[in-house]
Design a protein around this nucleic acid. Structure first.
Lengths: 219, 219
DNA sequence: AAGTAAACTTACTAAATAGTAACTTTACTG
DNA sequence: CAGTAAAGTTACTATTTAGTAAGTTTACTT
């Protein structure tokens, strides 16, 4: 309402608007089915502007990928950095993740659900972005469990296993969240921690689950 | 070597070969980037045959989706059906899942990593296929936990939460498996059960994880 | 060994769309 | 109030690729 006909937007602002639009369209259609024309239209400009500012469709996608990865990792780190124990850091980090995904659903789709159909250059950058997220979680898992058990340290392989399981669970749980809009990110985190935390300790303590011993360890 | 120039294959056989090829190409390139020409060439025939037998690109993709979903669900059910307790059924089911994914990696990519970029018709079928898999796991989770705790029953919402977390974890763990080829499906299942099973019981028993109580319940 | 139906091909059309060349318009500066 | 650089446009090309029409070849029957 402040300015209905605000043409002539300065470049840095326009670039972000283009990326905003691109994220929506990429998420909705997928990389190939997304047309640069549609992105340009949603951004309120014509196609050549997109090419002038972002070089190519691939460059545009990479810009989206970079910006959103940065935002997600920043949110995760900011949240985890505030907490005082490793366990609380994992909680805060998961919380930040669910909050981010709730508020930027399209971003997450772009970041995570475009595994195939991409050029090698994009695939490489994608893998790296994924590794960055995974490394955050793996770090917390490793530190958290080591702390709880008094010094024993998960080796990188096991921490990585845990991180993959956690990120995967969190990812798919975003589908569940869509059908349960009443569920807050905080409650999502609690539920997931409930499911996973005790088990994570078990893995480390050698308290192995074995088929057939159902119910003998608990309650 | 049995027959170097085996032209003129009967239709049912050729159809399966086309679907085989399509799965590889769809998994490698994604739905849109995959060209019917490439699929035809990989199948050892020319493009019009694909259209004659499978109607359209969409029909071809749906055929892939249906056949592989059927196979996965069948493998899961067969494995789970053999076991005698709900807990063992979940174990067997997970085991079957990891085995399937190991042996048919491309199928899993097609089934699971093509969320966007699809026509409404395909998206609908995809969602249904996903629900079928999810329902298997949710059923086992519900039954398994109810059994262990002596009759208390997870409501559908919670069983669904658990199922989403499990399927999501298993999905992303396939990435981890790729970098750990020495890890058998059986060991994957054990690790995941270790991480998750005790926690699942906790969720149900109201043994709530709360921030700050780290390490008070365990060893 | 014809006859025939199923298996298969070549060679096209039509549409979509990434990317560009050549231009026009606005806002700001001296 | 010119001059100019940044912001923006229209109108094209070149390529890719889903889908088809019209024809050819092989295997199997009688």
């Amino acid at each position: 309402m402040s300015d209905t006909r605000r043409r002539r937007v300065p470049r840095p602002v326009r670039e972000q608007q283009i990326i905003d639009a691109a994220i929506q369209v990429f998420a909705k259609r997928g990389y190939h089915a997304a047309s640069v024309d549609e992105i340009a239209e949603l951004a309120g400009i014509s196609k050549p502007m997109v090419y002038l500012y972002l070089d190519s469709k691939e460059g545009l996608f990479l810009a989206c990928l970079r910006r959103e990865t940065e935002r997600l990792v920043a949110a995760f780190q900011a949240a985890a950095g505030e907490a005082h124990s490793p366990e609380l850091r994992l909680q805060s980090g998961l919380d930040a993740f669910f909050t981010f995904v709730t508020e930027h659903r399209a971003s997450w789709v772009v970041l995570h659900r475009q595994a195939s159909e991409l050029s090698p250059a994009i695939a490489a950058e994608m893998a790296q972005a994924r590794r960055a997220v995974m490394e955050q979680v793996a770090g917390l898992a490793r530190a958290g469990i080591a702390d709880n058990t008094g010094g024993t340290r998960l080796d990188d392989e096991e921490a990585d296993f845990v991180a993959h399981a956690l990120v995967g669970a969190a990812d798919t749980l975003t589908d569940w969240m869509e059908r349960h809009p009443e569920e807050s990110p905080e409650r999502m985190t609690l539920r997931l921690m409930n499911m996973v935390w005790v088990g994570m300790r078990n893995v480390l303590e050698g308290e192995v689950w074995t088929p057939g011993e159902a119910g003998t360890t608990g309650g």
